[in-house]
Every structure is written in structure tokens, then in C-alpha cells.
Amino acid sequence: MALLSVRREPPARYRWLLWVLAFALPLATWSAVSYIPWLWHPQVLITDAGSVSWIKPGLRLDRADFAAQVNKATAANLAPPVGEPANPLYLPPPHAVGRALYGAFTTAPRLKGDMWLHESIVMSIKTIFLGFAISSLFALPLGIICGAYPALSRMTEPFVDFVRYMPAPAFGALMVAIFGIHLEPKIAIVVLGTFFTQVLVTAGTVRRVDPALLEAAQTLGAKRGKLVRRVIIPACLPDLYNDTRILIGCAWTYLVVAEVVGVSSGITFFINQQAKYRNFDNVYAAIIIIGLIGLATDQVLSFIGARLFGWKLTRRSRTRAFLGWLFSPRDVLYFPDKPSTR
């Protein structure tokens, strides 16, 4: 089995297949659970109430309760209720979510003044983008300085570490008191959640710059500021770029928390609202949209990164670079230091 060798990349012709399987397998499981009646279906969806007065068509009953009602009705020689096996409402089948995915964009919000889904998404992206940009604006320089000058790192990092352990949502009420109830406190929470981690991660990356490069630069006459600007920053830029990619993922986590602070907004508001109406297909649709946005952002950034920092990789043809990008292992978070042997 060439496909299952320890620590060996599968042959190229299988990679696209594996990539497809990565999404097809979860989808297949979901479909099986949704469409094969005997697999799970713990409830019964009533199609005809029969003689039972309190049952209405469309109601979902647990199997045991339904069986009890049927027994009671047959014992009393009355028409028993009729139904078909069904999943609970919170697990809609894939086609319903697919329909919702389309419908969510075309259906007007139920309440006047509520946002359309695309407006919610734009608002979420705005929150996360502003929050992440503000965080990066301060965290990257601070992290680089901390990584380059150990004295400064000893002066700042203990405190940064201390604050990092405080959960950002705990500052929710405080942020509302300071920034009001609209977009500002949400951005502030994304900043709080991202900033401190970003400082530490950036400083750590800067510290991993090969000291031999610094020594070489020093023997060529580079000192302090020039050493930082001309050697440290360019040497760790690809890794910083990758750190940023990963941290954007963290920012999405804080986004969901941030959006329930103050006036609920964005995609989280949409999800909560739809859950309230028990439109779980819409809830799934919104969650999938978040996933798609995240995946797309990450892939685009990864592709741009490979273009920007080609010196970290061996030069490959354009098509191979594209295919390699598409089917490269997804758990590789950093550029390999040496050209990979693939």
C-alpha cells in the first residue's frame, strides 16, 4: 500500500482524490444520517394525526411516545396517528441546508430593520478586518522590537502574558461602557483577543531568526537599527505572514463572542435570530458561510504568500505551484525551511 506509508507523501495522482474525499466523507456521513431511515431517525414526523386530538401533522414525537400513542389508539379501536421516521429539527438534511444557503440571500429579513444575510456578513467582515488591522498595527512592531531586544521583551512580556490569560469576552461589559453599543466595542474585543497573543507569537518568530545571519551581517558592518531593518525583518517576514494567517482564524473565534456584546450584530445576530425562529437550516447555512469565508481567506493568503516569499521555496512551474498549493497538506502551517522533497 503505497498510499499508507508512514510519513511519506501519497503519489501526486491521488492527491486530488484525497482532497475531494476530505469534504465528501463528512458530507456522505451527514447524508447517510439524514436519508437512511434505519440509521438514526430517533423521532417520528406526524403526517396524519388520526384520532389523537392534541397531535397535529408536522409535529415531531420521540419514537417511544409515538408508539405509546399508536398503542393507546388501537387499544381503544380508534384511528392511530400515522408518521414517518425523522431526525430532530436541529439536524436538517443537506438539501434543506443547500436550499437555505440559496434562500438566505434571497429572502427578506422577517422583521423590518433587520439585516439581510449579505449585510450581516459584510458587517462581520468589517468588524474582523478592522479589529485585526488595529491589533496588527500595534502588535507587529511591538513584537518585532521585543524579539530583537531581549531587554525590552523582559520588560513587556510578563505583563502581556498576564493579560493574555484574561478571556477577552470578560471585557465585554467594560468595552460597552467605554465605546458604546455599536461596532466599536466589538472591534475592541477582537483587538483584545488578538493583540496579546500576536505580540508573543511575533516576538517568538523574530527570535527564531538564524543567529548566523545576524553574525554575518554584523561582520559586514550592520548595527542595531540596520540589523533589525535589513536582516531581522526580511528574514522572518514569511513566518510573520504565516503567523498572521493563523491568527486571523483566532480572530474569527473572538468575532462570534464580540458580536453578542452590546447590540447583537453581524452573522452571529443572523444565527441567533434564525435559531430563535427554529430555522436550523439557515443556522447551518450561516455557519457554513463562515467556514467558506475562512477557508477562502486562508487559501488566498497562502497562495499570495507563496508568491511573495518565493525565496523560501525552490522555484517551480506556475501550474505545479498552483496544483501544489491546491493539494498541499493542510496541516503545514509554516513554510518548510528546506525545499520539501515532494
Binding site: 538564524d210 548566523a212 551581517a217 559586514l220 526580511p234 528574514a235 523560501k312
Partner: peptide
């Protein structure tokens, strides 16, 4: 810069 150095590990700036 009055004392140049060549290291075993090359130490060229890869970027």
C-alpha cells in the same frame, strides 16, 4: 567591516 568573515554554513541572505 574591517574584519570580514566566511562561515561554514554559508549564511547568505536568502531573500
Amino acid at each position: 567591516p574591517d574584519r570580514g568573515m566566511v562561515f561554514q554554513g554559508y549564511t547568505l541572505f536568502p531573500w
